[in-house]
């Protein structure tokens, strides 16, 4: 009995945790890139929703998860152009436009959903998983950790790639300069607006992929507000991580595991107060923040529009 309990419980916990964590990693890395470039993207949730819908519509009609993920990213990127034009080019307030994008996307995707799917509520087949050879056969944890849709491993690759770009390339230096000292970047011959534009579009793409992951692989369907606040959690993770991408991954897994604790407990027939469990990750984050957060660092020009004439 206790054997069955622990195996089933742990497997469901880990695999559910990773499933929740993957979209948080995509969106969180995107947000971190945008923040390093000085643009606080509160519209992340909206970009995820748009990506989720675009991806779902594509996957339903073409039957391909991969094309769905790609289209999701492109739709997210298209949504981010609104932020590029209004916040990077016209210097509008980033928080106001971010909220506008989020609530607007919530409305638009719900309307599109009702126009197309509200009678049929189509569902996608379960996404195929990729078993990592050998590792997925590790008893107890192997299946939960190494048997996922291939995009989960792409998320990890993305983390490595993004930290390398930021740490060791000229592009990364430009991005950090655009967030810390945009005027210095301009003086050195760079263009803060171009850099920020690229950063915001990258964020839009990654948020779109994250939203697509939720709809295609996590839920297998689209309903209004299917992302369920994941965008806001990703914002929190990105701000907490302060550019260290490993933290985004650990934070995402912490939250993913806490959220899937409920399902895991139900699976083995243990009754726990769901709500108390769901509070845990945020309480832990707050404790971590108050103990270690004193020297917290955010880019100096975060949420400050770059205006070449205002020097």
């Amino acid at each position: 009995m206790s054997d069955l309990f622990s195996t089933l419980f742990l497997a469901s916990l880990v695999s559910g945790g990773v499933l929740v964590a993957v979209p948080l990693v995509f969106a969180g890395v995107g947000e971190a890139i945008s923040e390093r470039a000085g643009v606080l993207n509160v519209g992340l949730e909206g970009m995820m929703l748009m990506g989720a819908f675009g991806a779902f519509a594509t996957a339903i009609s073409l039957g391909s998860i991969w094309i769905g993920l790609l289209v999701g990213g492109l739709v997210g990127m298209a949504t981010s152009l609104l932020m590029v034009v209004l916040c990077v080019r016209l210097n509008a307030n980033q928080i106001v436009i971010g909220i506008a994008i989020t609530i607007g996307a919530e409305g638009v995707t719900a309307l599109l959903h009702s126009a197309n799917y509200s009678d049929t509520y189509p569902r996608l087949p379960r996404a195929e998983v990729l078993d990592v050879p050998l590792l997925s056969r590790i008893p107890v944890l192997g299946d939960g950790l190494f048997s996922h849709h291939a995009s989960a491993y792409l998320a990890l690759l993305l983390v490595v790639l993004a930290s390398w770009v930021l740490r060791s390339t000229g592009l990364g230096l430009n991005i950090k300069a655009a967030g810390d000292q945009p005027h210095a970047l301009a003086a050195a011959g760079g263009n803060p607006r171009t850099t920020r534009t690229m950063a915001v579009m990258t964020t839009g793409f990654l948020a779109g992929v994250g939203g697509a992951h939720i709809a295609l692989i996590g839920a297998g369907l689209f309903v209004p507000a299917v992302t369920h606040g994941a965008g806001f959690i990703a914002i929190v993770l990105a701000m907490l991580a302060r550019g260290r991408f490993g933290w985004i991954v650990s934070g995402a897994i912490l939250i993913g595991v806490s959220l899937s604790l409920t399902t895991a407990f139900q699976l083995v027939g243990v009754d726990v107060p769901i709500d108390a469990v769901q509070m845990l990750p945020f309480i832990m984050i707050l404790v971590v923040l108050s103990v270690f957060g004193r020297g917290s660092y955010l880019p100096a020009a975060l949420a400050v529009p770059y205006d070449p004439e205002s020097r």
Partner: peptide, 11 residues
Amino acid sequence: LPNFFVLVMVA
């Protein structure tokens, strides 16, 4: 239509 249209207007 779903009631979400108001959100689009505010945005």
